[in-house]
Design a binder for these strands. Structure first.
Lengths: 294, 294
DNA sequence: TGCTGCCATCAGCCACGCTTACGGCTGGAG
DNA sequence: CTCCAGCCGTAAGCGTGGCTGATGGCAGCA
């Protein structure tokens, strides 16, 4: 039988991306982790890691084993909670993973309300960019994951987890205050093709989404500035450096920023925001999910 | 995080019914097992076992943990198989659990055909009396379980496993050759209330079933002889010591036994025979299941 | 060419888990 | 009743497994 500790180690290394990183998180020396992984590879009779000079990546066998490792670690944690529940003890901790803009808008009120209702429960918040995080839910490092999908991006395999749509969030087009195009009645991507756009780096979901919209409209947009942080994008637009699509919730918090908010007639993107948790979640997880939905 | 080895130990002890028994199966000394279990109890912070003079039984917490322990052990074995499959290796072993009468009738031809088709696969057969065996499928000690349910007996919780009805098997009433009642046109339980009956011990499923039938018919039957082995029952009936209900398949194999086969007009019991295996079974398991269905 | 990350290997040490040995307990046989 | 045969638990030793710390190889970068 495989050793669960070593599998947990594999998951940790896969997540950290390097043996040294995992070792640090676990308060071990890299040597110890390296030795354990070597033994795991001996156990399964195959290489699990590609050793690169800048860290490690998983082999195909490693990837296959990783999924199981995460569910096994998750099952071990689940077993522990079952016992705690049987002993009538309250879960002492609730860990929520979220992407940045939800972390700034959607999550804080829910967390605040929850803390008030359950002062004894230690709340933890983690930042995670989609499509990451599913593995951490599987392995019970996260109780609840808030993730999203941009149109066109594939929805990750739920791996036996429960995924529910929390809301669908419109994107709006923002321009610098007083921008010439802001006075145009009917804005289209074609009409905005000459502008400087601001979006994520190539391959990042919102960039992919933007490019698909442009393709659909038959135009090529020039992305002049790249940032994945919507607060940065907002600031760039305010400074007159370009135009961008941003989620509506970001604007709610922006107060009276010096921008113009419009919509493009031929491109009205929206991203779906999902909650992900184990099937049969605990009472606290359910409550937190309800608060997030409210 | 709990230790998977200790959980596996718990499962083994639960199955064996005693620490000493589990130790023997695992080629350890009872002392080692006892120490590990004590540490597991310390880990979870609760007693898991009731120490009786004649072995151990699980506490409520122990029962709760056992289910998880079995799924964890099963997941570990599943992970191992996934790796084997990824490496292109054939599964080397297939373990089938069955109850005795199926083991004598239904299973052998399927096993023989399978062995011919896959001579490299080591086949193992285990005897198990229902409702046992589900845990062994969960923990992957069994690939396939053939189990049954007598009418009136509860169907065990499938625990996330796949359970399909293989067949429904009639019971027939057998009497010694030349028995006076064999000439009666319409046999009823009431009419047979004066006979010596042969059945399992109190609490055994077929005994429970017989008593429920008797209750329904408003009579009390006298069970003179107790055996759970239908070959023994058959021999007792042949010897003129009583009458009994036996599954039809037992009679198929009995050849020309010196008995009379009849049916009771007011009691025609049947038991359901089920196949139990993991969701997403391997190719070999599917094939064996198909052979059993044929 | 040094420097700085990374990973692997080796030697040494500590702790965990095994065995052996013993004692307490209960239930059945002589 | 006594004795025995099973259980289970504890205590003391010992070996192995897994940790640390040191060293070396390797790739990328100034």
């Amino acid at each position: 039988m495989l050793d669960a500790h070593r599998l947990a180690l594999l998951a940790e290394v896969a997540h950290a991306g390097s043996i040294a990183g995992a070792a640090q998180r676990l308060s071990f020396t890299p040597s110890a982790v390296s030795q354990q992984l070597a033994k795991l590879e001996r156990d399964v009779g195959a290489r699990l890691l590609h050793r690169n000079p800048r860290g490690v990546t998983l082999t195909a066998v490693g990837e296959g084993l990783l999924t199981h490792a995460e569910t096994i670690v998750g099952e071990l944690r689940t077993a522990e909670r079952t016992v705690r529940a049987l002993l009538g003890e309250e879960p002492a901790q609730l860990t929520v993973g979220t992407f940045a803009s939800a972390g700034a808008t959607l999550v804080p009120p829910a967390l605040a309300g929850f803390r008030e209702a359950h002062p004894a429960v230690a709340l933890r918040l983690l930042d995670l960019e989609p499509p990451d995080g599913y593995g951490l839910v599987s392995s019970r490092e996260l109780d609840l994951l808030i993730t999203h999908r941009y149109p066109g991006a594939p929805l990750p395999d739920p791996r036996g987890l429960e995924r529910t749509l929390l809301r669908s969030e419109r994107f709006r087009l923002i321009l610098p205050e007083g921008h010439a195009k802001a006075r145009v009645r009917r804005l289209t991507l074609r009409g905005l093709a000459g502008e400087d756009w601001i979006s994520g780096s190539p391959g990042v979901p919102n960039r992919v989404c933007l490019e698909q919209l442009a393709d659909a409209a038959g135009v090529r947009l020039r992305v002049a500035h790249e940032s994945r942080d919507y607060q940065v994008i907002l600031a760039l637009v305010e400074a007159g450096l370009g135009i961008a699509f941003v989620p509506e919730s970001v604007l709610d918090r922006a107060g009276r920023a010096r921008i113009e908010v419009r919509d493009a007639a031929d491109a009205q993107p929206a991203r779906d925001v999902f909650l992900v948790h184990h099937k049969r979640p605990g009472r606290l997880v359910t409550e937190m999910a309800d608060r997030l939905r409210a």
